[in-house]
């Protein structure tokens, strides 16, 4: 099944200058009882966005009307903790299309790539600079060029290259889906099973 293609993204950003943001923060477990992929954006960072009585915490950046955009900028080691893909669905559903950090947890990164959310790994120095610029000026824009693997502060600011697995890059650019890919390899999988059973019975 084809997915939304990721090409060039140019947007303002939302800064979250905290390290080790875990998946329990991104989407608390008590909101995991849904059985569809939709609607998780509503509870993204729930316990930071709302206080105990359910009122908006106006100090939290996502409740500041000045900040918005499709790029989330977060401190080091983003997405650690549980394997819940709901974390990615929530970020995507809220409207983000890329997360920029200096370090991502493995499962989160895989989940993001499987859902058209681009995790962009940048050097810590660049991240610090970006975080400062964006925090001080909500109108600051950033562009992410997946084809050329470049993230730039615009206009005229710094830019850096970022790494992405070539296979994943192609999937994102073309909106391809890994399950379709695997299904197209059914014959090889069956051949592997047959060979393996024969070997185990040696």
């Amino acid at each position: 099944m084809s997915k939304e293609k990721f090409t060039l993204l140019e947007s303002t950003c939302v800064p979250l200058p905290f390290e080790n943001i875990d998946t329990d923060q991104i989407i608390p477990a008590r909101f995991l009882s849904a059985t569809s992929r939709e609607g998780f954006g509503e509870n993204l960072f729930r316990d930071w966005r709302y206080d105990k009585s359910g009122n908006k915490n106006m100090e939290f950046v996502m409740n500041n009307p000045l900040f918005g955009g499709k790029i989330l900028i977060a401190g080091k080691n983003f997405g650690s903790g549980s394997s819940r893909e709901h974390a990615v669905w929530a970020i995507y559903d809220y409207g983000f299309r890329a997360v920029v950090s200096s370090f991502f947890a493995d499962i989160f990164r895989n989940n993001a790539l499987n859902n058209g959310l681009l995790p962009v790994v940048v050097p810590e120095k660049f991240l610090d600079k970006l975080m400062d610029l964006v925090s001080n000026d909500p109108s600051q824009k950033v562009s992410i060029d997946l084809e050329n693997q470049v993230i730039s502060i615009i206009p005229g600011g710094d830019s850096v290259q970022f790494e992405i697995n070539p296979h994943k890059k192609e999937c994102l650019l073309k909106g391809l889906d890994d399950i379709d890919y695997l299904l197209s390899r059914k014959d090889q999988i069956i051949a592997f099973e047959t060979a393996k059973t024969a070997k185990d019975e040696d």
Binding site: S83, E85, I107, N111, N114, I179, L183, K186
Partner: peptide, 12 residues
């Protein structure tokens, strides 16, 4: 693994 991968395993 994530849920997309759960689907991969179920399917293939």
């Amino acid at each position: 693994i994530g849920t997309s991968e759960v689907e991969m395993v179920l399917a293939t």
